[in-house]
Design a protein around this nucleic acid. Sequence first.
DNA 1: CGGATTTGACCAGCGC
DNA 2: GCGCTGGTCAAATCCG
Length: 173
Amino acid sequence: MENYPILFSSSSTSIVQPTQHFPSYMINHQVFTDVVVPPGSSSDNKSQSSGSNGGNDQTDDHHHVMKSDKKKVVEKKVRNPRYAFQTRSQVDILDDGYRWRKYGQKAVKNNKHPRSYYRCTHQGCNVKKQVQRLSKDEGVVVTTYEGMHTHPIEKSTDNFENILSQMQIYNGY
DNA sequence: CGGATTTGACCAGCGC
DNA sequence: GCGCTGGTCAAATCCG
């Protein structure tokens, strides 16, 4: 998947304001959502970027457990919208106040940097995110959120290091 | 010692 | 059908 869904094709993606909490230094950066095209409509965008999906939010978690039920599970196609942030930062791990557990890492084609997959550690919260950094200029980090948090922020972000790092990012370091 | 990370294997979709 | 690729699992490992 060389073209990342976020990108700048204005027809298939739209810029939105995040509906959940995001740190201030992210809000001022570019935010895109991946518009999910309903099955049956046109296919002018690259909606579902590859497969496997893996259950996010509350709807589906269809592993390979599709049972012997005769009723085929419809609406498996729809992917959750993904919010992508593009930020300039030296570090990959942007602290957004949530607790993330890394569950995978893959090399990206046409990109020398790997992509990391994280999942929210809160129980029952299946929000995922993936972090990738552009090989073009190493200063840009793309963070893609998938799903919505259904719980308050856990981490205390009020220590000096966090505040300092965020200020540095905000100022364009 | 418990939770997070690492890392190769595994799996599903898609293109050919 | 086969192979490639992106996404996830899970055992081993790391680290506080």
